[in-house]
Design a protein around this nucleic acid. Structure first.
Length: 260
DNA sequence: ATGCCTCGCTATGCGAGA
């Protein structure tokens, strides 16, 4: 079972890039972030024509997440529990029925949080506390589960080309990284770092200042696997080449291949 | 130092992104 997460930065602006990618790379499941579309505006037919079931959790103008799947989906839920007043569309989950195992798959778009400190940073940290609670509940279910998406967290200095440039940024501040570690420490495996050591691996390059040409990137898109899911991990990789294509997103897809 | 780009908005510059 090949699952990819991809912050596409606007589904309408990216529809050709998205359908080309789905056709060529053919994930079984794709978790999308920043669709920037309401559910009714999502170009679902073009994606259904490629053999995918489409489940969206959209919002006007900003945010928005989706699950695309060639495999059957069950028990789809939308929204991260813990705050009924939160209207930002950043969380969707479903059970994917694989050939041998079912996997609970959660797609997330964690708040950016800048400028920090400030109300947006407070929202980021509060959202991460809710994520921690959901993560605990997923572990208690003891079924294979993963949480993947744009975490807006640079876990370690080696995950940035220029870590010194991010010192005071919401993506790299100690409180952000501690909140991320606190979730990992529940017992999750960060799939990429389970397979690959060392610097120079990024999933985001800013559109500005020639960041892509300078390979001035950061690694902020992650897969967190429950113990039962980590046992299924075969590979995890970053599809870097996508960033060099026509009219790209500023993020690239990150993948896992699970024995399921 | 700031902004550099890109997106969506019922726009014609702005907020948000990271």
């Amino acid at each position: 079972m090949k699952i990819a997460t991809f912050n596409i930065n606007g589904v309408k602006a990216r529809i050709n890039a998205l359908t080309d990618w789905l056709t060529e790379s053919a994930p079984d499941v794709a978790l999308l972030q920043e669709i920037k579309s309401v559910d009714e505006g999502f170009p679902r037919e073009m994606i259904e024509d490629l053999g995918y079931t489409v489940e969206t959790h959209g919002q006007k103008g900003f945010n928005g997440v989706a699950i695309l799947s060639k495999l059957p989906l069950e028990d789809i839920t939308r929204g991260l529990p813990g705050d009924d007043d939160d209207e930002q569309a950043r969380w969707i989950e479903a059970t994917v029925i694989g050939d041998t195992d079912a996997v609970r798959v959660c797609g997330l778009y964690l708040p950016n949080g800048n400028p920090a400190p400030g109300p947006k940073y407070d929202y980021k940290l509060a959202w991460m506390e809710r994520l921690h609670a959901r993560a605990e509940a997923l572990l208690a279910d003891e079924m294979p589960a993963l949480m993947a998406g744009d975490y807006n967290i640079i876990p370690q200095p080696e995950d940035a080309k220029r870590p010194e440039a991010w010192t005071d940024d919401a993506l790299f501040r100690p409180e952000s990284r501690a909140a991320f570690r606190k979730i990992l420490n529940l017992g999750f495996t960060e799939a990429f770092r389970a397979r690959t050591f060392g610097p120079g691996h990024y999933s985001f390059w800013d559109y500005q200042a020639g960041a892509w040409n300078k390979d001035d990137g950061i690694r902020i898109d992650h897969f967190l696997l429950s113990p039962q899911c980590a046992d299924m991990l075969q590979e995890c990789w970053i599809e870097k080449e996508v960033r060099g294509r026509e009219k790209p997103s500023d993020h690239v897809p990150v993948w896992v291949d699970l024995k399921a």
